[in-house]
């Protein structure tokens, strides 16, 4: 079933500038796999070779971070919206 996926600016160039795209899937993992299949430029930027989320990416189903749900196994329906955002971190460590 189609699920809306909201893309961060850094990934939009791989989707012809679209802010939101619609892809098929019944779990977060299926949606992300379909997303990369539709937009191969995103390959390696969201999940690693094993399909696990990169630590520098946060994925949400509606308001909830999927790491606090069932990660890529989290079920989604057509009424859910997925959001992908970069993890934002840094600091003065080592200085």
């Amino acid at each position: 079933m189609p699920v809306q996926v909201h893309l961060p600016t850094v990934l939009r160039s791989h989707a012809d500038g679209a802010k939101t795209v619609s892809v098929e899937g019944s779990t977060v993992g299926e949606v992300l796999t379909a997303l990369v299949a539709a937009y191969p430029g995103m390959s390696g930027q969201i999940t690693d070779d094993s399909g696990a989320l990169h630590k520098f990416v946060n994925v949400y189903v509606n308001d909830d971070d999927v790491r606090y749900l069932s990660a890529t196994a989290t079920p989604v329906t057509t009424s859910d919206e997925l959001s992908i955002l970069p993890a934002v971190a840094g600091g003065a460590v080592g200085v």
């Binding site: 600016t9 934002v88 840094g90 460590v93 200085v95």
Partner: peptide, 25 residues
């Protein structure tokens, strides 16, 4: 994004550079 450096100058640390998420930011 903005963040503070509490005891160092206002220049990106190696950590800031390594973890910068978006070149357009």
């Amino acid at each position: 994004v903005f963040h503070s450096h509490t005891h160092t100058e206002a220049y990106p640390s190696p950590t800031d550079v390594a973890q910068a998420p978006d070149p357009s930011w």
